[in-house]
Each structure stands twice: as C-alpha cells, then as structure tokens.
C-alpha cells in the first residue's frame, strides 16, 4: 500500500524558511504570492491488510516520529 504523509507547521508558528522563500519568489518577479509556509511530504510504502490498518500504522508513525505535534500538524493520505 502506498501513502503520503504531509507535515505542516501549525498556524501561528513562525516559519522563517517560508518567509525567505516568499521573499525570493517576490524578488524573482513571481506575482501574487502573499504567503509561503514550508512543510514536509513523506511518500511511504507499507504492508497493511486494509486502509484502516494502514491509517493506524501511519498515525503511530506521525505521533512517534514524523511530526513534532508541539508545532506541527500532519495529514495522512492513503493512495
């Protein structure tokens, strides 16, 4: 089974990297960008008997390691 985990910063948490990218896009002449927030994407292959079981495994992966829930949110997409 294939899945994608998306980890993003919680709103309100400062993201200096996103800010720098935002500034760079503006200086490159890309119009209309008002905000950039940087996150992480994990493409994961796993063995699971059902999407629900995969969801459980991935939730554990997020809580234990992939996200720091103090400042990050995560979203799981089973493909």
């Amino acid at each position: 089974m294939k899945a994608r985990v998306i980890v993003t910063l919680k709103s309100g948490v400062l993201d200096p990297q996103g800010k720098a990218i935002e500034g760079a896009l503006t200086s490159l002449g890309v119009d209309g960008v008002t905000q950039v927030r940087q996150g992480k994407v994990f493409d994961i292959e796993l063995n699971a008997s059902s999407p629900d079981q995969a969801q459980d495994h991935l939730k554990a992966a997020c809580e234990k390691l992939l996200a720091n829930t103090v400042v990050e949110n995560y979203r799981i997409e089973i493909m």
Binding site: V13, L14, P16, Q17, V70, V71
Partner: peptide, 16 residues
C-alpha cells in the same frame, strides 16, 4: 525537547 524530557521545541534561527 524531542525526547519529551523538556517542553517546547528548537526551531530554525530567526534570521536563518
């Protein structure tokens, strides 16, 4: 902080 022994987290320096 990551190991749960202290609260909070250390993020990228303000000026990168």
């Amino acid at each position: 902080c990551e190991g749960g022994l202290l609260p909070g987290v250390l993020m990228r320096n303000r000026d990168l």
